[in-house]
Design a protein around this nucleic acid. Structure first.
Length: 129
RNA sequence: CCAGUUGGCCGGACAGCCGCGCUCCGCAUUGUCGAAAGACAGCGGGGGGAGGAAAGUCCGGGCUCCACGGAAACACGGUGCCGGAUAACAUCCGGCGGGGGCAACCCCAGGGAAAGUGCCACAGAAAGUAAACCGCCCCGCCUGCCUUACGGUCCACAAACAGUCCGGACCUUAAGGCUGGCGGGGUAAGGGUGAAAGGGUGAGGUAAGAGCUCACCGCAUUUCUGGCAACAGAAAUGGCAGGGUAAACCCCACCGGGAGCAAAACCGAAUAGGGAUGAUGCGGAACGCAGGUUCCAGCCCGUUUCCGGGCCAGUCAUCCGGGUUGGUUGCUUGAGGCAGGAUGCAAAUUCUGUCCCAGAAGAAUGGCUGUCGCGUCUGCCAGCAAUGGCAGGCCUUACAGAACCCGGCUUACAGGCCAACUGGUAUU
């Protein structure tokens, strides 16, 4: 099951400010996790990814496991489909822990390949009724 | 073999593929990021990489910075049988005392309640200068009944009267007894209440009772003996006083500065702003032309007192230095592990040899697959049963992830292993 192509080069998000920036980007919901995507508009840089597992999802052992499985899924498969210059943040949910690995990988690939929808204009004036 | 007690240990294994962070060696010796400090990057090879609790952060230390003039008192917090171990402890070891268990063994916040104050719910008469609900006992009065005695009346006997050996009924009086009621007193044995009722058991004693008296036990005081001590034992005396509660206040003895690796040090852009020195100048009063000196105030050194020390608002000038972001150090060689010896009942100490064993920072130590093992469920078969075999399914496992480091405590934990001991049962 080893991929015949070399591992893709994917950077990591490490600072709180970077995570907060991606929160303003597009959100793709679905099973297992929520994917947040932000186009930084820099085409010649490698894509970067960060993982968010909140304390509500379990104790330290379970949180570690969720992060590791997601990281492995990105490393083995999903990383090839990430666009350069984009930042991705995976917000894990509890069922990441028990999901079959193949299903988790497939879900992640699909979510990344999903075409970028038109961003709704984030105007709070429209919401006020 | 069954049941149990104590102590210790393990807590999936192997293989394959792909990864992560740390470090070492060799070869290359340049590039990338950045304001700087600094960090990262190539190829090949090697090494090691979570736990018994890494957890809770409850104690104790190391380490770091801050604070700190002395003495006494006070306040606050903690500890609390004795001896030992230790860097230290609320830990550990060995004893003592009390309680539980047939036993191995386990549990104890275990100083002081005759220094004082407080509290003791409900129930109960009474919760602490004892008291008196029922009961028990004594005395007085009243009522009823019984027995005896004297007397009387009637019946019966007899019959003419007299009479009463014997019998019965009723009445008066007296004495005694019993039942009930009322009043006065004694009592603390018994009942009842309660977590707890002012020593326990037995005998004597008494109207009934009571340490009222006696014996034994307990208790208190004194003395002696053993023990380093906690304490234990014995004797004499006392004659029962002194209920519980100190995780209620309190008293006594001992101990204790504060904050924590996001500590702290160093390197380091801009900007806000800090410190030192000098000048001017200072809350009051006195002296002096003035600089200034003295006294009284004020503030600081945990509080107070005494002694002692320091500081003065504001403005201006000069000089020094660098919060935050980022980076490096701290950061893993340590009260260290393992093996053996010595001392000690033990906790532990000590000697020799040997080993280097995670150092992350949105946080590495993993992901997937296969085989086995373990567990569990279902079905079938064998068996009286315990159980065993086969097939299939599930979970690939409990509790749980280092964050400066040690020593403990506490809490969580699927399943399993070993040793010693105790009580049964069977066999010899």
């Amino acid at each position: 099951m080893a991929p015949d192509r070399p591992s893709p080069e994917v950077g990591r998000l490490k600072k709180r400010a970077e995570f907060l920036a991606v929160r303003d980007g597009e959100r793709r919901r679905g099973p297992f996790f929520v994917l947040e995507v932000l186009d930084r508009g820099v085409l010649d840089e490698a894509p970067r990814i960060g993982y968010t597992v909140t304390k509500r999802q379990g104790n330290a052992v379970e949180r570690n496991r969720m992060r590791r499985r997601l990281r492995e899924a990105v490393h083995l498969a999903a990383g090839f489909d990430m666009k350069p210059g984009h930042d991705y943040v995976v917000v894990a949910r509890r069922d990441t822990l028990k999901a079959p690995f193949a299903k988790l990988t497939q879900s992640l690939v699909n979510r990344i390949e999903q075409p970028a929808r038109e961003r709704r204009p984030k105007a709070p004036d429209n919401r006020t009724k």
